[in-house]
């Protein structure tokens, strides 16, 4: 009987994998909110405590917002459209140029960027949230900015150009909540 069980191990593994993916998809559908009712922060780091960071940011959820979601860029592997419409991004210096079309200049957001900014064609787009030289960063207990064996780089916070909260100030509120996290 045991021999039988082990000879068919692949069926058990396959079922476990299918369950994880299937329920992940179902619960994403169940808990997702319309763009106007959610705030999304996308972080270009795979090592991310996304749920914990979303919980921390949810403590100061603006009125009318049902969901604060934090996702790694990997989350959008099948849905780049949703990635394009995120409210805030944390992106490394070496990829900022690549995603520039998705970002809004800081001057249009009302965000008071204290300290270093990432500039493009003379305009400030990103606010530095992680300094590679000192290893200090915003929400560092939730985001691993530099993994072991990786060359560290600076990370910046950007506002989404296609965000549903460009005018109502809710993306700005999310950025302010993020600024308060150590």
């Amino acid at each position: 009987m045991l021999k039988n069980l082990f000879s068919q191990w692949y069926k058990y593994v396959l079922w476990a994998l299918l369950s994880v993916f299937f329920w992940g998809w179902i619960f994403t559908l169940l808990t997702d909110a319309r763009p106007a009712q959610k705030l999304v922060l996308c972080v270009d780091r795979p090592e991310l405590r996304d749920e914990a960071l979303a919980d921390a940011l949810s403590e100061e959820k603006p009125e009318g917002i049902k969901l604060v979601a934090v996702h790694s860029f990997d989350y959008y592997i099948f849905d780049t459209e949703e990635l394009r419409c995120a409210d805030l991004y944390i992106v490394g210096e070496n990829k900022a140029e690549k995603y520039i079309a998705s970002f809004r200049p800081l001057a249009e957001t009302g965000f008071a960027a204290e300290g270093e900014t990432w500039q493009h064609e003379g305009m400030a787009y990103g606010w530095k949230v992680y300094d590679a030289a000192s290893g200090e960063g915003l929400a560092a207990s939730y985001i691993t900015y530099a993994a072991a064996g990786e060359t560290p780089q600076d990370y910046y916070l950007f506002f989404g150009a296609e965000s549903a909260h460009r005018e109502d100030g809710k993306a700005l509120r999310l950025a302010e909540a993020l600024r308060k996290l150590s």
Binding site: W15, A16, S19, V20, F22, W23, G24, I26, F27
Partner: peptide, 8 residues
């Protein structure tokens, strides 16, 4: 997590 555990 509960749904995944029950289902598995």
């Amino acid at each position: 997590k509960a749904a995944v555990a029950v289902s598995v």
